[in-house]
Design a protein around this nucleic acid. Structure first.
Lengths: 235, 235
DNA sequence: GTTTCAGTCATACGACTGTTTCAATCATAC
DNA sequence: GTATGATTGAAACAGTCGTATGACTGAAAC
């Protein structure tokens, strides 16, 4: 719980010679994150993590109690700033449009922009989203724990914004639209492996982030609107 | 490789007293499938599989050489009939429309119908799609191997059909649309855990399969078309 | 009636897992 | 300077893992 003692970890650091001033806790989180991305959660042992971090094996259980809580800590650390930016973007869009609610495209952009930016920046955030896809299918209810810890607050906020942007949409339309939109986004985020498979020969890696954002928003908004008009037709 | 010797496996069957006439190989596949669905690939040990199947531990490596090949065998066994039905549906739709290509909605329905049906039937096929989502994020290039084994042939066929149904669409539109569509579908299939999280209070489990198919098709076709018209606008 | 061989069996191998223990170490407050 | 409480260290814990081995079984081939 306490955050002291900067130099002691350095003196005995064997591996990870760079970044010598970092706390043990952060070194573990960094190593865990990169190994989780590369190999998955279950396939990554605590020994590999601590070796890469240049830290003693027992440090993990000392600082995080268990491997499962380490996984959650890795995810929360990455997710919090992204969700903060999502909310502030949504705030800004809502302020800009004054009395009217922002368009569906704006709301979707507020949700997608931060992760697209991070993917573009690439530096050390880009590879993270793969973890979300992994966690989603991981047994043990890990996703559920993470959801209530980091996602529940922003989910309601965006659900309301989408509802206001789509007058005439029933709650089931909203629900299905969000469900499928999250799926499309998650798949886009996990695209490194998926992309190569789908593309036979054409389709370059599409490095342009603003174009990616535009396509994502277009597809998802189009899907949402088609859902709503389908409901209207069938009445 | 050979398929003989029915009675010898029965005499010593300890657990799994039911279905006594099944071959060892099938018993292993059945047990592996249900355990993979429940706990994931890595978390399922060969010992649990063989115990549940009422089979000796060594039988797995005898029949499947390795755990990885067992996983692939489980997936291929489930995927093949689904892909067969997908292709025959597409064939039928193309025959029905005569000289014109079938609509985008028809093509998407041909792709989605078999899995929605299976989910509705539920009996023992419904839980399988969770595995696809799992495999997608599993390390070791497993998905790649499965893809080239079971998916590559139908991917090209549907890509062509979509291209014909969307005149004026560029190859990038098709590519992105398929990418995001597959994501939405995968997420829909893996919905058992996701659904409960997203739905605050409303939104019943939506048991009606034909309504599900309609919503899926509407969302995806709407997304596709919005992608195409976006490209047309920006030219 | 013997040979043959796919299939099953119990058992063991070596490696690796997450977690725990307890002594040693450190900066800091007294 | 010494006591204090947070960290770290090396080692071991009790399991589980996937795979390999070699003896045994039974039915079909000749």
């Amino acid at each position: 719980m306490t955050e002291t003692n900067v130099s002691s970890a350095i003196s005995t650091a064997t591996a990870a010679a760079l970044e010598p001033a970092k706390e043990t806790k952060d070194r573990i989180l960094d190593a865990a994150e990169s190994l989780f991305v590369a190999n998955g959660f279950q396939a990554t042992s605590l020994r590999r993590i601590t070796t890469m971090a240049g830290v003693n094996l027992a440090a993990v259980n000392y600082h995080f109690q268990s491997k499962e809580q380490l996984i959650l800590a890795v995810m929360v650390r990455k997710l919090e700033p992204i969700n903060r930016r999502r909310l502030s973007l949504l705030d800004r869009f809502e302020a800009e449009t004054g009395p009217h609610p922002p368009s569906l495209e704006k709301v979707l952009a507020a949700f997608l922009q931060p992760i697209v930016d991070d993917q573009a920046a690439g530096v050390d955030l880009g590879s993270f989203p793969v973890l979300m896809g992994r966690l989603y299918t991981e047994p043990g209810g890990l996703m559920q724990k993470l959801f209530s810890a980091a996602f529940a607050p922003i989910a309601k906020r965006f659900k309301d914004a989408i509802t206001r942007a789509l007058p005439g949409a029933g709650p089931l339309d909203i629900f299905w639209g969000m469900h499928l939109t999250i799926g499309a986004m998650a798949h886009y985020l996990a695209r490194p492996p998926a992309l190569a498979l789908l593309a036979g020969r054409d389709a370059a890696p599409v490095p342009n982030p603003s174009q990616s954002l535009g396509r994502l928003v277009a597809y998802m908004a189009g899907g949402f609107r088609a859902l709503v008009s389908r409901s209207a037709d069938s009445l």
